[in-house]
Computed example of a mutant assay.
Amino acid sequence: MKKIKRKIKILICIILNRIFILIFPLQKNKVTFLSDVRKVMGGNLECVYEYLDDCQYKKIIALKGDHRDKRGFIKKIKLIYHLSTSHYILLDDLSRECNYLKVRKNQEVVQLWHGAGAFKKFGWSRSNTGEDVGPIHKGYRTYTKAIVSSDDIRSCYAEAFHMDISKIKATGFPRTDMFFNDQYKENIKKSFYQRHPRYQGKKIILFAPTYRGAPVSKATYDFSKIDFQQIYETFHEDYICILKWHPALYNNIQRGYVEIPDLSQYNHFYKDFSNYRDINDLLIVSDILITDYSSVIFDYYFTHKPIIYFAYDLDEYTGYGGRGLYFDFYDYVYGAIATTTSQLIEDIQKREMYDEKRQVFYQKFLSACDGQSTKKSCEWIFKESA
C-alpha cells in the first residue's frame, strides 16, 4: 500500500510539473535554491545566494533538514511551481524533487554539491560497491552543470552524476573562499569566543567523523571504537573537544534511531556542536581535527593546522560492499593515521603537519580553489547561460 501511495504522489508531481510548464513561461533570472539536507542556508548555496544581486535575480529558498521530512501540501505545490518556472535551480546534494522534473529549454539545473574534493563514492559511482542506486539517484539525469574543486576530479563527478564531463567545470568551491579572507576568520573567532568565553585559553580538538551504513537513512557510527574517558583524562586540563556528528548521523540520533554514549560527566570537556550552522566556522577556531573519510578534510586543508584520520575500519569501509573511495586512501592523507585510542592520543600530542603530503593533496583535489571560487562559479553558471 505504501508503494502505491508513493507512486500516486510521484505521478501527481509529474502531472503538476507538466501543467505548470504548459501554462507558465520560464522566468528569466529566477533562481531556486533547493536542499533536502539543511534547514538554513549555508555552504556553496549561501555563497552564491549572497553573491547574486537582489535587484537582478528573483531568489527562492526551498530548504528542509532531512530527506524524510515532509513538505506540506501547499508548500509542495508551490515548490513544483517554482521548479517548473525557475531559470536556474541550484542544489547542494541529492534532492528527490528532481526525479519528476522535466528540464525546460534554456533551464539550468546546477549541482554545487556540499563537499569539495572527491573522497567517498557517491551517486552512480556506488553501483560499483554492490549497492542498488538506480531508484535513489535517477534525478541526476536532470543536471545541466556541476562544479568541482580541481580538474583532476571532474571524471569522478561525471561518473557519479552520469553526466558528460564537458558539463563539469573546475571553478573551485565557493565555500572555501572564506579561508582566504583574514578579516572574516578574525570575526569568526571573535564571535565564537564571545558566545563561549569559557573556551578562551583552551586548545580545541574538533572530532568530526562521517557516518557508517547505507542508505543514508540508516546512518550510524561505532562509538565503542573510541575511549572517550581515556581522551578526557589525557587532555581535559588544556583542551576541550567539540563533537560534530555528520548531519545524517545527527538526524538519526535526534530521532532516537542511534544511541550515543552518555558524556554528561565530562560536560566541561566534550561539547556537542552538531546543530552548529556551518562546520567551516568550527574549522577556523579549532586547533586540530580528528576525522576519517569525511569531505571536511578538503576544507580543513586551508586552515594549515594538524589533522588526524581515525580510520578504525579502513579495509571494511573501502572494500567491496563498503562505501568505497575514488582513490587510494593514502592519496587523501596529509596527517597521521590512527586506528586505536592510544594511537589517537599519541598523534594529538605530536601534532605533526606532513608538509610534503599537503602540497600533493592540494594539487590533486583543490587546485581550483583560490579565494575567487564564488565569482568564477557564478560567472560560469549565470553569464554563460544568460
Rank of each mutant, 00 (worst) to 15 (best):
V40D: 10
H196W: 12
D281F: 14
V258Y: 06
I61W: 03
Y88S: 11
Y100I: 14
V103M: 12
V40A: 04
E379N: 12
F223S: 00
R38D: 14
A170I: 05
F180K: 08
R68I: 02
Y270V: 01
G42P: 04
V40Q: 09
D272N: 11
L83C: 02
Y293G: 00
D272S: 11
S224N: 03
Y140A: 15
D238F: 08
F207Q: 03
Q372D: 11
D93M: 02
S274N: 04
I8K: 02
H162G: 10
L243Y: 02
Y301K: 13
I242E: 08
E159G: 12
I240R: 03
T142A: 07
Y362F: 10
I74E: 02
Q230A: 15
R255H: 10
G371K: 08
Y276K: 14
D53T: 07
Y232F: 15
G139S: 08
G115V: 09
D92Y: 01
D313G: 03
D292N: 11
Y300M: 09
K202V: 05
V133S: 10
F73W: 08
D227Q: 09
K3C: 09
A311R: 15
S95Y: 11
S373A: 15
K64A: 12
D53H: 01
T340I: 00
S342N: 13
S274H: 00
P135H: 15
L243M: 05
L112W: 01
Y100F: 15
I61T: 08
Y100L: 12
E352Y: 07
L16G: 03
A248Q: 09
G130K: 12
D313H: 15
I77G: 11
K167R: 01
S35F: 00
I74A: 07
C378L: 15
G201P: 04
G43M: 13
R323M: 00
I136C: 14
Y193W: 00
P25S: 00
H236C: 07
D164S: 12
W380I: 06
I253E: 13
S217N: 05
T339E: 06
D182V: 12
D54R: 05
K357A: 10
D182M: 14
G134H: 15
G65N: 12
